Simulated assay, not measured.
Amino acid sequence: MKVQCPTCQTQVVWDTTSEYRPFCSKRCQLIDLGGWANEENSIAAGSDKENEMASSLDIEDIEALLSQQEPDFFKAN
Rank of each mutant, 00 (worst) to 15 (best):
Y20E: 02
E19D: 03
S55F: 03
Q11V: 00
G46S: 14
W14A: 05
L65W: 04
C8N: 07
Q69H: 07
Q68F: 07
S25E: 00
K49G: 12
T10W: 01
I43Y: 05
F23V: 04
D48G: 13
D15R: 03
T17C: 07
D72H: 01
L30I: 05
N51F: 07
N51G: 13
F74G: 13
S67H: 06
I31G: 04
V12D: 00
D72E: 01
F23N: 03
L30W: 02
G35Q: 07
V3P: 02
G34Y: 08
G46T: 13
S47W: 06
E39H: 13
S25T: 00
Y20Q: 03
M1A: 15
A54E: 12
A76N: 13
L33A: 15
A76Q: 14
T10Q: 03
D58Q: 05
E39V: 13
N51P: 02
G35A: 06
L33Y: 09
A37Y: 04
M53A: 15
K2I: 00
N41F: 05
C8R: 06
I43E: 07
L33D: 12
N38Q: 08
I62K: 13
M53R: 14
Q11I: 00
S56K: 10
Q11T: 00
E60A: 15
L33M: 14
T16G: 09
L33G: 09
Q29K: 10
V3Q: 03
Q69I: 08
Y20S: 03
D61V: 11
Q9K: 13
T10P: 01
I59D: 15
A54C: 10
T16W: 02
S25C: 01
E50M: 14
P71Q: 12
N38G: 06
Q69A: 14
L57K: 02
I62N: 09
W14N: 08
E52Q: 14
K2L: 01
A76G: 10
E19C: 02
A37Q: 09
G46K: 08
M53H: 11
N38L: 07
L65E: 11
K2H: 02
V13G: 07
T16I: 12
E70Y: 02
K49I: 15
F73I: 11
T16V: 12
D32T: 04
R21E: 01
G34E: 15
E40V: 12
F73H: 13
A64K: 14
Q9N: 15
D15F: 04
F73G: 09
